[in-house]
Design a protein around this nucleic acid. Sequence first.
RNA 1: GGCGAAGUAGCUCAGUUGGUUAGAGCAACGGCUUCAUAAGCCGUGGGUCGCUGGUUCAAGUCCAGUCUUCGCUACCA
Length: 682
Amino acid sequence: MTDRQLLVTAALPYANGHIHIGHLVEYIQTDIWVRFQKLRGRKCVFVCADDTHGTAIMIRARQEGRPETELIADMQAAHERDFAGFDIAFDHYGSTNSVENYELCKEIWKSLRQANLIAERDVEQLFDPVAGTFLADRFVKGTCPLCKAPDQYGDNCSKCGATYSPTDLIDPISTLSGAKPITKSASHLFVELEKMHPFLEEWTQSGKHLQPEVANYLKGHFLGNPLRDWDVSRPNPYFGFAIPDSPNNYWYVWFDAPIGYIASTWQWCKRNNRSLADWWQSEATEIHHFIGKDITYFHTLFWPGVLKSAGYSLPEFVHIHGFLTVDGEKMAKSKGTQVLASTYIRHLDPAFLRYFYASKLGPKLDDIDLNVTEFINKVNSDLVGKVVNLASRSARFVESVGLAVEYPHDGGLFAAAAAAGERIASAYEQLDYARATRLIMELADQANAYVENTAPWTLKKDPTQQHRLQEVCTIVLNLFRQICIYLTPVLPRLAQQCGDLLNVKIHHWNDSQTPLVGTNVSKFEHLLQRIAPEKVQAMIDESKEATPATTSETPASTGFNDTGDALLAEPMAPTCTIDDFTKVDLRVARIIKAEEVPEAKKLVKLTVSLGGDNTRTLFAGIKAAYTLEQLQGRLVVIVANLQPRQMKFGLSEGMVTAAGPGGTEVFLLGIDSGAVPGQRIH
RNA sequence: GGCGAAGUAGCUCAGUUGGUUAGAGCAACGGCUUCAUAAGCCGUGGGUCGCUGGUUCAAGUCCAGUCUUCGCUACCA
């Protein structure tokens, strides 16, 4: 049993963006589990890698005018810096764009071929005649062929969860150019997942590898129907690996990304002179994947199917977590709640976030909430007020004499806390960190009560009680050390500091079972600073400023600093002629009445005047961004000749122009003073 | 409206297979203490466990219905 070794992975971050505190939920959760296993003495390897391929990377590199390899190298360096800043200790951090990954992709591909799971057939495929490229997955939108939900991406439906090929979409549109794609015939390669249906049914429903909610979800959404063939090739141009036996075709990023888990392990094996087969093709190794709920399908159906047929070990467990909300709401750049890891680290100690997440994380898929006030209270109260305070209020008394040579009678406190170790360990093991931290804080409460009852500060004043003082502090510091040991997976730096203070390092969970005696006690220094609310606010403010929104004052010396993100989010439309443009009649209009639509979440009803008696009623999705008062009376630019559209709450006779991604980030077009309603925009 | 999740003290949550007066932490209030990073200790207040009905000797815990909230989506033309 103890001979079994663990291989742990966290999801591969995509090389198209920076790590933020939402991502960190997963990496911290995983890192805690890995550190716990290592502290328990289990052989455990933690691997991860950057996910580097795909159209998004290709397009971005193209827009930045540099090779993809340069882009992904920069991003990988940034990711690794961020992780290091939060003490996420990977044994190896690789890249899916590696020779090892390519080798493995080829090998696994061969296995799939041999297992007769690859179907090759010419399919009608969508092609963007403007951009001159085939359109894949996220670059085509349209109506879901199953549930008819509009505006769905080409790989799966966010509404009904169905997966399909982009060509199955109804009324597709290229998000690259906005052009209507034409269909072209191209050779395509599919994994026939349905052939593995019985296996996947058994594996997912065995109750051993997935959280019960996840198993139910799969059963209800996928396993009740035949599994669709999985399109794993993308035609040139594409940034990825060329498929050796299929000229002009590349593997789709989701094919090589999970194989990156194996490739990264392989790189680790090479460095450490190990055999990859011991980790990925051996009963002796348990594989644990940690992922977010958004990528459940790939990791619980597609990936096990590939592993099974290619002769690799199946995951022992796929641990799935929820998302992060901040103050009960989805993270938003506009509110400064989408805090980048690099921004956080400039203002606050990573230990705070690690502890806070630990205190909130359970084994379920529930989203966890970061309430700013609770964050400050909890960290200050638990870590500073309770835990660190134990050392702070006892270490100084024994700086000169050290710990007693024999552990004194403590009324069973140490033994009770030692016994609690197994309950805490079990909570960690089951990913119930909230329970683990709660149990640990109980120990801290008991220890603080002990200090209160023995009153070392009184003993200090009595020359005859100096030995007793040493005994009391020996007990308190041992209780403190036990707590540090139990918190080591969450707070590795604190464990280190505890080792420095008492001059014996913490190596193993079982160090909590034996009291430390006779060692020197170093000069006490503060182990953690309390969180100052101003620092949290500063972090949030900085996160707001980090958004692409232009500021009115721009430093003359540095010039403008607008990022390309907005353009990237919404690529340029194809060239149009002046005739095309004049078809659109843009007019200045005044909002003469702005009304609430109570049942609508996004819409506001506007009555606008084009001057004189010419008024229009129109609906605009700006409810979250503007108050009725702000709208009342202001001039806007509207598309005046747009075909009226029947909406749920009435007929909309035009469209208000605005920029921004939506939600609270909508910015209406204004016009310089002098313009009057009815004037046309030329 | 659809899909998903959830509704337990001011806040964040625990409450095993239904079983004695429903718990914790934080916050609040009162007192004590001063070793400690205005930290600590003791104590108090506060919940008709969303609502209604049902099953049961017994329901926060099971069933039905209902309401509400959150996320995605439908409405951002």
